[in-house]
């Protein structure tokens, strides 16, 4: 696993660039990750990100878009507005979590 530097901190990532160590994540790092995929984080983005982090702790896997809607209460349409084109992957990336595995 490569180690890269984000916000002056060493961060372990996989070959695609997704973080692999839950506790290495910080809000500062999330801001940099978001900027790298051209997203400027608003308070609503943060609500989604904090839901995803908490949900991962409970479920042991990354939330899909469906789960983020039904359990988190963030409508799919809004997810596409906040994290355009590939919401599920972008949300996980910024939240420092692996790509979601679920099909739906």
């Amino acid at each position: 696993m490569p180690t890269i530097e984000i916000a002056s901190k060493p961060v372990t990532v996989n070959d695609e660039g997704f973080m692999t160590v839950y506790d290495e994540w910080s809000e500062e790092i999330a801001t940099v990750l978001a900027a790298q995929v051209e997203i400027e984080l608003t308070p609503r983005h943060w609500e989604v990100i904090h839901f995803l982090r908490e949900d991962f702790k409970k479920e042991g896997e990354s939330s899909t878009s469906r789960h983020t809607q039904t359990v988190g209460g963030f409508p799919i349409k809004e997810q596409f507005e906040l994290f355009p084109k590939k919401p599920a992957k972008k949300m996980s990336y910024i939240a420092g979590l692996p790509k979601p595995k679920g099909c739906v």
Binding site: T3, I4, V13, E16, K89, K90, Y93
Partner: peptide, 13 residues
């Protein structure tokens, strides 16, 4: 030792 930033390809193009 760190390597340069790796950013996933989210198909920006």
């Amino acid at each position: 030792m760190t390597t340069p930033a790796i950013v996933p390809n989210f198909g920006a193009e």
